[in-house]
Simulated assay, not measured.
Amino acid sequence: MKKTITLLHTSPVHIAPFKVLAKRIAPEVELIQVVREDWLKQARKHGLRQSLMEEVAATVQKSKGTVICTCTSLCPAAESAGAIRIDGPMMQEASRIGGPILVVFALESTRKPTMELMNSALLAADQEAEVVPLFLGEFWPLFEAGETEAFIACITTAVRHAVADHDIACVTLAQASMAPAAERLTDLGIPVLTSPEMAFRAALDA
């Protein structure tokens, strides 16, 4: 039977990269991509209210195949309904590597779910590690404006400065939007983890 993976996005910018990813890794998979920009707007304005959580959960439950939620802010709601949260496999790998772990994010609404997930992953791995959060919210307007190249360049520079200032063992780019920065940070000599491919491979195995 042909495997189906449904992706729940809050930005259309993720559609093309996942098409490329699927074509490279598993071209036989049926890929369904749903974009709900209104969900992130609600989460940023009101937080994860019950009504929003119920709407996300209902969408997960009626979606076809294995579901991945690519929006970190909404991952807790989606995961509770059975979806794979895009940052889950990445955080598990970071906890295996150990710390200090630099956790990079650019949207305030992702701070709480991201840090909670990182801490729970460390606990599950019975691993003690320092977690260094790096909030880069000043660059998010670039992403919203579609200035992806400028956004990635700013993220890359900020990560380089942070790694230079701390004894970092592992970097996690906590939001899918940051993933392209990893290709520019290979010279750091430490793992720079991104979420899209790791989550996609987890969905293939689910």
Rank of each mutant, 00 (worst) to 15 (best):
E130T: 12
S109R: 05
P113T: 04
N119W: 12
R111F: 07
E130K: 12
F143L: 11
E128H: 14
F143R: 01
V132N: 05
A125P: 07
M118L: 09
A106T: 14
T114L: 10
L136E: 05
G146N: 06
A125T: 07
E108D: 14
A124F: 03
V103M: 10
N119G: 00
L123E: 15
E147T: 00
F143A: 09
Q127M: 14
R111G: 00
E144K: 13
A129E: 06
L117M: 11
Q127L: 01
E116V: 07
G146P: 05
S120M: 09
L142F: 06
E144F: 04
W140G: 03
T148Y: 12
L136V: 08
M115A: 01
L134V: 09
L107N: 09
E144L: 15
L123F: 12
P141N: 05
N119T: 12
V131L: 06
G137T: 03
E128P: 01
E128D: 14
P133M: 09
E144G: 12
V132R: 10
P133V: 07
E130R: 12
L117A: 11
T114Y: 01
A129D: 05
A124V: 00
T114Q: 06
D126W: 08
L117C: 06
E147A: 09
F143D: 02
T110E: 05
A121L: 04
F143E: 03
V104C: 08
V131S: 03
G137Y: 00
R111V: 03
T110L: 03
E147M: 07
A121H: 09
E130G: 02
A106P: 04
T114E: 03
A121K: 14
N119V: 10
P113M: 04
F135C: 11
E108S: 13
E130C: 02
Q127I: 06
E130H: 06
L123Y: 11
S120P: 03
E144N: 12
A106I: 00
M118I: 09
E108G: 06
W140A: 11
T114P: 03
T114I: 08
M118A: 15
T148N: 14
Q127N: 14
K112M: 10
L142E: 12
L142P: 08
A129L: 04
F135K: 10
E108A: 14
L134D: 10
G137H: 03
A106S: 13
E147W: 01
L117Q: 11
R111E: 13
L117G: 15
